[in-house]
Nucleic acid binder design. Structure first.
Lengths: 220, 220
DNA sequence: ATAAAATTTTAGGCAAATCTAAAAAATATT
DNA sequence: AATATTTTTTAGATTTGCCTAAAATTTTAT
């Protein structure tokens, strides 16, 4: 029921790596955790003994139902703290992740449920990732690449994948931030550029390059 | 500059034990940390090597200037989180300590300074203990035992040292809580009982036993 | 001042989490 | 199908933080 920081980091990494396909490999996990394959094998034996994963030597591993539940709990803590840091403490959204990496390991259920309530039961963190509720349920990740969204849609900016200074400078100039609502006026097939009109702003056009780095949701 | 959870717990415990007198003994520290004297000796060697304490075998130890600075940083984190839990998340004041024990080890300076600002730079935690500021300065602990306070004074309840169910039940009955303002009407030398009158309440008398467990401040 | 008691330290071990180097197994190549 | 390459596991160390039992030292009592 209670796991070490190290065990939690492995569980979380497996959760993120396994996507919907299923299996995670020793090498991939070692790379994700900046550790060595031998260390991964060691830990996999331990997690298997604790029934958090299924594991066949040489054939990778995947989370058990219990492991998935545990992972969702860790993800919940991480994303609630990210929300808190950005929303209440005014952290820049590119700084929240690192601090949340540490806060997520404080595993008092009471703390997390009260924090959730205090924050107003948010459904998404500042990066636009869904926050599991106390039962482990979360909204499906409804984000799409702006470049792949149909014209004449009204959408809300949820996430920006490239967070370089240059990109952020461009977004700032265009007054686009997380939560900005905008309409897709037209898509030009010649260069895949598109014309958009943020609410309360003039329409302008943006490049495919930019549109591929902006993720939006349809419903709120 | 960055210490393990275990090192931080030792440093904090030495800080609390050394009071103003100075030296802390191996046995006392072992008792405070629920560990064995041999483990204390091991850790003392490590902390000495890191120049956080001065340590002469068989003659106890005390914090160095650097150790004291480190301890104040940990105490600052602990008490700010206690304040946050009580004030923002509505924790009961007897529940904040345990969770803060874990949160205090997340050592991002930026996090703590922003938290401090968010909370409005509080000077005292929910137990009435002073919170060091980011430079390590704090108000002197202005609390006195109610039993040792002069008659005819107007004071504010700041802290209750005994937090047993029985004690809390008595306080609840008397409607005394942290922040309650009360006047000391009279002291009876026969049994050291005293008559007090909480603001907006009738006066009543309390035993010396109770008065010794209630701490009050004079100025606010 | 010596013996008894209490305190502290040393010595040697253990578990968790990591590592390197070598062996084993699976996959890819010719 | 046999060999080479890649991946994974095993074997054996290392570090941190803890333990027990025994030895060393200090303190207390006679």
């Amino acid at each position: 029921m209670n796991y070490s920081v190290s065990e939690e980091n492995y569980i979380k990494a497996i959760f993120h790596l396994q996507g919907d396909s299923g299996n995670v490999t020793t090498n991939d996990l070692a790379a994700a955790l900046h550790t060595r394959p031998a260390s991964v094998t060691d830990m996999m034996k331990k997690l298997k003994a604790k029934k958090l994963i299924s594991y066949q030597p040489y054939y990778g591993f995947k989370l058990s139902a219990e492991g998935r539940k545990t992972a969702l709990g860790i993800v919940r803590r991480h994303r609630l703290w990210e929300y808190f840091l950005a929303e209440k403490l005014n952290f820049d959204w590119e700084d929240v992740h690192e601090v949340a990496e540490h806060l997520e390991h404080v595993s008092s259920k009471k703390l997390i449920d009260k924090l959730d309530e205090y924050l107003g039961f948010p459904k998404f963190d500042p990066h636009g990732d869904p926050i599991p509720d106390s039962a482990g349920h979360m909204e499906s990740d409804a984000r799409n690449m702006l470049s792949e969204t149909e014209a004449h849609q009204m959408v809300t900016v949820a996430y920006v994948s490239n967070q370089s200074k240059e990109m952020l400078a461009l977004l700032k100039h265009r007054k686009i931030r997380i939560g900005t609502k905008l309409e897709i006026i037209k898509k030009f097939s010649f260069d895949q550029s598109l014309e958009i009109k943020p609410k309360n702003q003039q329409a302008f056009s943006i490049s495919e390059t930019l549109a591929k780095n902006i993720f939006v949701t349809h419903e709120q």
